[in-house]
Design a protein around this nucleic acid. Structure first.
Lengths: 216, 216
DNA sequence: GGGGAAAGTTGACGGACCGTCACATTTCCC
DNA sequence: GGGAAATGTGACGGTCCGTCAACTTTCCCC
C-alpha cells in the first residue's frame, strides 16, 4: 500500500500535467516553495540562505537555479500565491457591496481575515529583528491594488466619494492595513473583526474630511 | 594650508573629546557612518556588503568590527541619528500646539518636512527592489513613538479626543506617514505640505468616527 | 521498440564575503 | 622613558553564491 508502483503513485497527484517531465517540474517547484516556507518560518527571511532552502529539499544546489533566480524570487512567489488567493475574495466583495463604503469595509474585512488565517505567509516575514517587509511590487499584488484603486477613483468620479488624492489614499489604506495587521497578530486572541472595524471607521470618517488634491 | 600638522588639523574639530584616542575613535565611527550612508545611497541596503562600506573608508576590515557588529547595526545607527534630529522638533511642536488637533497636524508636518529634507536617510533605504524597510524597533524611534502615543492617550483620557484603540491608532499613523512619505518622494516637486495636509485631514476626520476599542 | 535530441539534474568550482584572532602599532600615564 | 592598555591590521577558515560541463532521464519520431 505504502510502496506503490510509479504509475500508481503518480496517478494520485496527476491532474493537469501530462508528461512525466512536466509533473516532476511542478513537484520540484512545489518542493522548493514548501521548503522555503518552512525555513523562512524557522529562521526568518534575512537569516535564511539559498543553501538552507536547498538543503531542506532533496535537490542538488544547481537545480534550485533552474526554478528561481534567488531567495528574493522564492519570496515573491510565496507572496504572490497569497495574493492570488485574496484577489477573488476582494472581487466577490466588490460585487456584493451595495456602496463604496460597504466595499471599503469589505476590503478591510477580507484582508484582515486572510492575514489572521494565513499567518504562515504574512507574519513569518518579520520574524526576529528582520526588517524585510511585504513586497508591494509583485505582479499579482500590483494588479490587485490597481483594481481597488480604479474602483475608488471611479467612485470619486461618480461623486460617491469626495474627490481626493487617490495615490495618497491608496498608500494610506496600505499603510493602515499592514501596520494594523502586525499589531493584530501580536494580540491574543487575534481578532480580525476588531482590526477591520477600526480601519474602516478611521477611513470612512477620514475620507469625508479630505481636502481636494493639490497634486497636479 | 591644506597640509596642516597633526595638532593643527585636530584642533579644528576637537571639541568634546579630550585625548587623541577618543578623538580618532570618534572620527573612525563617523567615517564608517559617512561611508555607509554613501554606499547605501549608491547600492541600496540589500546590495551593499560590509566590505563595500569598509572599502569606502581607509580602515582595515577588522577595525569595522570594533565599532559595529554588522551592516544591520550601522543601519540602525544611521536611522537613530535621524530620529535624534526629529524628536526635539516634535517636542517643540507639542509645546507650541494649542490643541490635540494642532499637535497631530504639527507632528505630520514635522515628519514630512524632515523626510523631504533628509532624503539621504529615508529614501535611500528602499532603492531598487530593496525590501528593507525603516526599522521601528530602534531605541530612539521607540522612545519617540512612546512620547507621541502617551500624549494621545492622555488626550483621550481628558476627553479631548474620542477614546479609541491607541495601539491601532499609532500603528495607523505610522503606516500612513511612511507610505505617504514614499509616494511623496516619487513626485516632482516633492511637496511635504500637501502630504501633511492629506494625512492630517484623513486622521482628524477619521478619529472622530472611531468606535470604542473592543480590545480588552 | 530503438535511438538520438532535448530537457533537466548534479556537484564541484572560482570568486566573494563574513567575522575572528594573533600580532603589530599607537596612545596613555606614571 | 617605558610598560600597560587600547586599538588597528590583514590573513585565515568557514560559508555562501551562481555557473557550468558532464551526466541522466524523458520525449518523440522513425
Amino acid at each position: 500500500m505504502t510502496t506503490e508502483t510509479d504509475s500508481g503513485a503518480s496517478a494520485v497527484m496527476a491532474h493537469l500535467p501530462k508528461g512525466k517531465r512536466e509533473r516532476t517540474k511542478l513537484a520540484n517547484r512545489e518542493a522548493i516553495l514548501a521548503a522555503a516556507r518552512d525555513v523562512f518560518a524557522r529562521l526568518g527571511y534575512g537569516a535564511t540562505t539559498v543553501r538552507d532552502i536547498i538543503r531542506a529539499t532533496d535537490l542538488a544546489s544547481g537545480t534550485f537555479y533552474n526554478y528561481f533566480k534567488s531567495k528574493e524570487e522564492v519570496f515573491e512567489a510565496i507572496q504572490d500565491e497569497s495574493a492570488v488567493r485574496v484577489r477573488p475574495r476582494l472581487r466577490a466583495e466588490r460585487i456584493r457591496a451595495k456602496s463604496v463604503e460597504e466595499f471599503i469595509a469589505g476590503s478591510f474585512r477580507t484582508f484582515f481575515d486572510y492575514v489572521a488565517t494565513d499567518r504562515g505567509t504574512f507574519a513569518v516575514m518579520r520574524r526576529n529583528a528582520d526588517t524585510v517587509r511585504v513586497r508591494m511590487d509583485t505582479p499579482e499584488i500590483i494588479a490587485g491594488f490597481d483594481e481597488l484603486k480604479s474602483d475608488i477613483v471611479r467612485a470619486m468620479d461618480e461623486g460617491l466619494l469626495p474627490r481626493a488624492d487617490a495615490d495618497f489614499l491608496m498608500a494610506s489604506m496600505v499603510g493602515v492595513a499592514f501596520e494594523c495587521a502586525e499589531r493584530m497578530l501580536k494580540r491574543e486572541p487575534v481578532d480580525p473583526a476588531a482590526a477591520a472595524d477600526f480601519a474602516t471607521a478611521l477611513f470612512l470618517g477620514g475620507i469625508r474630511a479630505l481636502p481636494k488634491p493639490t497634486h497636479s
